[in-house]
């Protein structure tokens, strides 16, 4: 088993880095909200992207420190899963988000990151002391897990843009189009296009992840709990169905947005199933050959 002695990276422990990142996300959210709602002007996208990027770098350092400490990808409990998902969402916002040209996306993303980060830091049971490697020893299965969570990050961003669509649509329907966030929101047609692209991206990543997971599962069926497998497939199927219904114009944009938010909530809830590891604990005792894949100390 990897050593659990506390490791300091540049003088700080993993959670201290992550707290710093959370403070940056919270500050960004407050600044962008104050700017839009009180000063009635949008904070320039470059400023928000820069601030969120600083938070993301701090979070990366925190996750890296944790990886060093436990000798593997930090994907072993709910705290780490949520942090990795938030990290993925922010990464997509930073690297792909500018192409969407949505000024309020930074506000929404930093708020999302702040809420989930605080939640994962304050619910102490999520960062369980008995920390077993829930995703096994194979580097492929770690890749499967990382990709799956990355797709959850994409779906997280999708849920935010879906919420934006619903807010914008509601404002236009109710004719509440002066003040608030309305002047800074993108158009409905742009949001529909962004949602379609995000769903496609997330679903492809999740499909690849499941493909890798399937290969592992096919070789060692005992290693994966049925409920965990079922939960993951249900989420994959749900997004697939949304994708098809939307492509065939059976789902309206509004229903599509609600469905994306609902399935993302279900996906978050399914994380508690993913972190259940009774079977893994039994089998992980036998397989002591810990892979160096994704172990920061190995690189």
């Amino acid at each position: 088993m990897p050593s659990e002695t506390e490791i300091y990276l540049l003088g700080l422990r993993d959670k201290q880095w992550i707290w710093l990142a959370t403070v940056v996300f919270a500050s960004t959210f407050l600044l962008a909200s104050y700017s839009a709602l009180k000063l009635r002007r949008k904070t320039g996208r470059p400023y928000i992207v820069s601030l969120v990027s600083i938070g993301w770098i701090l979070q990366t350092l925190g996750l890296y420190a944790r990886g060093l400490q436990y000798g593997g990808c930090p994907l072993a409990n709910k705290f780490e899963l949520v942090q990795f998902m938030v990290w993925s969402t922010i990464a997509i916002y930073i690297f792909i988000g500018p192409a969407f040209r949505v000024s309020l996306l930074g506000l929404f993303t930093s708020g999302f990151a702040c809420v989930f980060s605080i939640l994962s830091m304050t619910v102490s049971s999520w960062d369980s002391a008995s920390r077993a490697a829930i995703f096994g020893d194979s580097p492929w299965i770690e890749a499967h897990a990382a990709l799956a969570l990355f797709s959850y990050g994409v779906f997280g961003l999708l849920s935010l843009t879906s919420a934006m669509y619903l807010m914008q649509s509601r404002s236009l329907k109710r004719k509440e189009v002066v003040g608030g966030l309305f002047p800074f929101m993108p158009s409905l047609v742009e949001l529909v296009s962004i949602n379609r692209r995000l769903l496609t991206m997330g679903w492809i990543i999740l499909t690849v992840s499941l493909g890798i997971g399937y290969k592992y599962f096919a070789l060692d069926t005992d290693s994966v709990m049925t409920i965990k497998l079922a939960a993951t497939i249900v989420i994959w199927l749900a997004y697939g169905i949304i994708f098809i219904l939307r492509a065939r114009r059976i789902f309206s944009s509004k229903r599509f947005s609600w469905a994306c938010i609902a399935v993302f909530i279900a996906a978050l809830l399914s994380l508690s199933v993913v972190t259940r590891n009774e079977k893994r604990e039994a089998s992980s005792a036998e397989s002591a050959s810990v892979s160096n894949y994704c172990d920061p100390r190995a690189s």
């Binding site: 914008q168 236009l172 189009v177 993108p186 158009s187 409905l188 047609v189 742009e190």
Partner: peptide, 8 residues
């Protein structure tokens, strides 16, 4: 302006 908010 409203048309812009709907269609971009």
């Amino acid at each position: 302006e409203l048309a812009g908010k709907i269609f971009g």
